[in-house]
Amino acid sequence: MSTEQTDQKPVFKTVSWHASRQNNKKRTWKGLKQIVSSERALPWPENVVHYSNINAPPSFKPAEKFSDLSGLPAPYTDPQSRLRYANKDEYATIIDLPMDITAGYLALRGATSIVG
């Protein structure tokens, strides 16, 4: 915290805390991923449930395919842009789309990996 805070310090904050904060200006906070992984590394008793234990299971149903443009059920995929489309009108639109838009649609669907 910069020095200007001294004047602004709300009355209800303790002096000792405030003083200690001024020394170490930058403190890095662990992100959730770090917290969870360090939590998992500890030798917990067996019955303990963690934050990381209650993640939803992966889906067992096959993912349906929807058109990237309209959201309608999409039986086709354009092999060049890899966008999904529902009918020929959409295809006509797709082939004219600029690269950044097609890339945006793919990124939105999370299909940017080359393998998938």
Binding site: N55, A56, P57, P58, S59, F60, K61, A63, E64, F66, L108, R109, G110, A111
Partner: peptide
């Protein structure tokens, strides 16, 4: 359908 955003997780009803 979280897979619409590329997530692998199951949807609400499935969970």
């Amino acid at each position: 359908k979280p897979y619409m955003l590329g997530s692998q997780e199951a949807g609400l009803s499935e969970v």
